[in-house]
Design a binder for these strands. Structure first.
Lengths: 419, 419
DNA sequence: CAGCTTTCTCCAAGTCGTGAATTAAGTGGC
DNA sequence: GCCACTTAATTCACGACTTGGAGAAAGCTG
């Protein structure tokens, strides 16, 4: 079986005291250099061998050597040429879009979405399936059906799919076991369940992390190496990114920012504790606070209601207070992140986060400054997400791609007969 | 000038998306393997070549090759032999204690301490110097004088000192510039100031981090790869460790855990914000809360007063309430760390932390469980520091050693004429 | 078409880890 | 006292790798 969380440590990453003792061989060197070149080509678009040589500080000879190999394997292809001041034109290189495909799946509380992408992240097929309650077996069934469906409708062979990235709620440990306390998923071996239904490699991660990954690659996080992608919707979560790759703790369940206490002994949270950030800035709780303060709204749809509250803040004093408080709580939550992990960028997203941010971003920034220490605050920029909610599946689909890039384009031994 | 914070990223550490493009050469391979072997020998005591071969998965031939080199350079030495069931005895290897020396300096608010160690961390000389207020120039002067003093009294040549690790308060950025908002150090180029007074490499880090490092290497953190060392004294701080080496953010100022909001709009903190953890569990603030609640203490010495308060909790209801609240706040702070970074171990230290922990550790553990999510809580163990306060300088002295180990025993080009 | 510039590739080192063979250094049996 | 026997460490030929430099390729200019 091939399945796992996206967090498996790869050898040679850690160089600290408690590092796993791992030798380096001449083969690791080559894989590492292939990875550097392939990542460069993937990330910074068509690039010539010459530019690659400069950027990677590899010799021109080695670049040529490695690129020849990558082209022979089909991962990379030439993409026209561009004039070079006077001399022989540079040949541009890019990752072959159709070398392999990737699938991203988003498991939400009300639907399962499965999308098929080529390596350039063009969407080739999408399938949505509404669900009533996220029962593990049902979800697994819909993900697998969705997988078959997008493959069928696009004509893509299973053997050419690099992997399926699956975004779920809750905590995902290194063995792709999912824990979602609030939804009753208690140690569900989700990765294994999926892997039993397909030979394609399965990678599972938390939805906040995959959305964060999408923002880091294609959205507001581009260029940052240490960032936090904060998601505020009904619930509250965050993806912590350090050194350019999503950070996770021992068992890869880091980032439960929403269940961080900011008001000791305060409002009860659905996690069972009191005073969690989520209990103050989660959309549901914001609306609840508004009702308790005597506010009235015309709709019961959460998103519409939240928008109505924001609009009401212009005129109603009660609404304005609630909104101001929400900004305060949220900024305290941000300040905690700023002080604790000192990111260079905070990306605010989630539907409620975006609604808030669109109107109150400057105020939010100022409030964070009041709560955070000067030095780390001076180095953080707070911006809004650039990608929509659909990016959850997109981010999930980047998981197999990240693995491909890190492996230098070396494919894992496949159990699917090669096509 | 050779100075820097301890946080400089070394090439090849990051393998994520935003990694710095860095080639790997055959030379990196060798350095990496030397590092693996040297670290193994240093960390796990006398080890034979054979054991090294097994642990590093390097071939016996390579181990032999590398060890021969390390011995020739003087970093490693043979240390007797041990019988091997029946055959040729294994020759044990250890790091040569007197190959080089390291200095650790602790800059506190009331004193400067400088200590000289050999590579086995035996103390060869210590100098203390009381100071009234930590003026940058004065502190620099005392560190440099202390350095000269420990060298003089021990007869160690400056050229054999690997480096000076300096532990300071406040935030230390990657250029060894110190920011200590509460003490008026605003962007003090501390590393540079020190480097101007000596040719020995200077490494600067926050005291909480160095103490954390000491606990990770020689204390309660041994064996853990993802841990938090929390220090509760007059102030409150934490060292975050991931992957075995102290984590720092973009500008290496992570870990200001004490200035994390746990009570929105609560007590004012000396950092200027409100409701910081430090404003509730910092010793000064705990005593203040006790006084405000009508409690009386017989001494004005902070540590004695704190101990008295804890003793009074046995009989006085007011004291008991204050202590119970303190445990509650502290456990919320721990739970935040558990949820956010998901460490496998939390090490509690600092004089107030130890006093509290000695009496109330089980209660603290239970309270953390009430605030944290089940899954990450089930994977964390909460223990007490094993090393005393003196370990700050010890931890600082490990900084040059860490660098030596990571460099595989290759010495940096020295400006001091070789001795 | 010659001359020039720049890009890319090929080739002869030089470095490194590895497996197999070899040497070193003990123990135990007779 | 000598000869297996066992295990540890070293030596050596080999293959994999990067690299600098030489040379080929591919365009432009006059």
């Amino acid at each position: 079986m091939d399945f796992g969380a996206a967090a498996d440590r790869r050898p040679g990453q850690d160089r600290g005291w408690a590092m796993e003792y791992r030798r380096t061989t001449v083969r690791d060197m080559r894989r590492s250099n292939r990875s550097v070149i392939l990542t460069g080509i993937y990330r910074d678009g068509p690039l010539s061998r010459q530019e690659l040589s400069v950027r990677t500080s590899l010799s021109a000879a080695s670049v040529s050597n490695l690129v020849t190999e990558l082209i022979a394997e089909g991962v990379v292809e030439e993409a026209g040429s561009v004039e070079s001041e006077g001399g022989r034109p540079r040949v541009l290189l890019r990752v072959a879009r159709e070398f392999r495909y990737v699938v991203g799946a988003e498991v939400g509380e009300t639907r399962v979405r499965v999308e098929l992408f080529d390596l350039a992240m063009n969407v080739l097929a999408t399938v949505d399936h509404p669900i009533e309650t996220p029962e593990p077996e049902v979800v697994v069934k819909h993900v697998l059906e969705g997988l078959a469906s997008v493959l069928g409708s696009s004509g893509v062979q299973a053997s050419t799919v690099l992997g399926v990235g699956v975004a779920v709620f809750g905590i995902v440990d290194a063995e792709a076991v999912v824990h979602a306390q609030t939804l009753g998923w208690d140690a569900v071996p989700f990765g294994q369940m999926l892997a039993e239904g397909t030979d394609i490699p399965i990678l599972v991660d938390n939805g906040a992390n995959t959305l964060g990954q999408a923002e880091m690659w294609f959205g507001a996080g581009r260029g940052a190496t240490d960032a936090v992608v904060a998601l505020v919707g009904s619930g509250v979560g965050a993806a912590l990114v350090t050194g350019g790759s999503s950070y996770r703790g021992t068992r890869s369940s880091a980032g439960e920012w929403g269940h961080t206490t900011i008001m000791y002994g305060g409002r009860g949270c659905r996690c069972g504790a009191q005073g969690c950030l989520e209990a103050y800035v989660g959309a549901e709780d914001v609306l609840d606070r508004y009702h308790q303060a005597g506010g009235e709204l015309s709709t019961s749809d959460e998103e519409a209601a939240f928008a109505e509250l924001l609009a009401a803040a212009e005129t109603s004093e009660v609404a304005a207070t609630i909104v101001a408080d929400t900004i305060g709580y949220l900024s305290a939550g941000f300040a905690n992140l700023v002080n604790l992990v000192n990111p260079e960028r905070i990306v605010l997203g989630g539907w409620a986060g975006l609604l808030l941010g669109e109107r109150y971003l400057p105020r939010l920034r100022a409030e964070v400054g009041r709560h955070a220490l000067r030095q780390p605050y001076s180095q953080v920029s707070i911006v809004l997400c650039e990608l929509g909610r659909d990016a959850v599946a997109l981010g999930a689909a980047t998981l197999p791609i990240l693995r491909l890039l890190q492996d230098g384009g070396v494919l894992p031994p496949s159990k699917v007969p090669a096509g």
